[in-house]
Simulated assay, not measured.
Amino acid sequence: MKITVDEDRCCGAGQCVMTAPDVFDQRDEDGIVVLLDPSPPDDRLVVVRNAEAMCPAAAITVEPG
């Protein structure tokens, strides 16, 4: 899978970090998402898809492959 984040859309809610802390983090200064692993293993697909779905700003995109 391939993950992309749109930092301009991110509102800093942190749902992604709570859902998949090994894939996402937040900047200390403003809470904007930091992508730790743009291509995590396929066994993380469910939690990454959950993070994508829970993002209130729709700032996370997950592509298969």
Rank of each mutant, 00 (worst) to 15 (best):
K2D: 02
K2L: 10
K2V: 10
I3R: 10
V5D: 13
D6C: 07
D6V: 00
E7R: 15
R9P: 02
C10A: 13
C11S: 13
C11G: 08
G12V: 13
A13C: 12
A13K: 11
A13P: 03
A13W: 11
G14W: 11
Q15A: 14
C16W: 01
C16L: 11
V17A: 08
V17P: 01
V17Q: 04
M18P: 00
M18G: 14
T19L: 03
T19A: 00
P21D: 04
P21L: 00
D22C: 00
V23S: 09
V23R: 00
F24Q: 05
D25H: 03
Q26G: 08
Q26Y: 04
Q26S: 12
R27P: 04
R27D: 02
R27I: 09
D28T: 07
E29Y: 13
D30W: 08
D30G: 12
G31M: 01
G31P: 03
G31T: 08
I32S: 10
I32H: 12
V33Q: 10
V33K: 09
V34C: 05
L35F: 03
D37R: 02
S39C: 03
S39K: 09
P40S: 08
P41Y: 03
D42Y: 01
D42F: 01
R44T: 15
R44L: 14
R44H: 15
L45H: 06
L45F: 06
V46P: 01
V46W: 02
V46M: 04
V46E: 15
V47L: 05
V47K: 13
V47C: 06
V47F: 01
V48F: 07
V48W: 09
N50S: 14
N50C: 00
A51Q: 00
A51P: 01
E52A: 07
E52I: 13
A53G: 08
M54I: 03
M54A: 14
C55E: 02
P56C: 08
P56A: 06
I60A: 07
T61K: 06
V62T: 07
E63T: 15
E63G: 00
E63Q: 14
E63R: 14
P64V: 00
G65C: 09
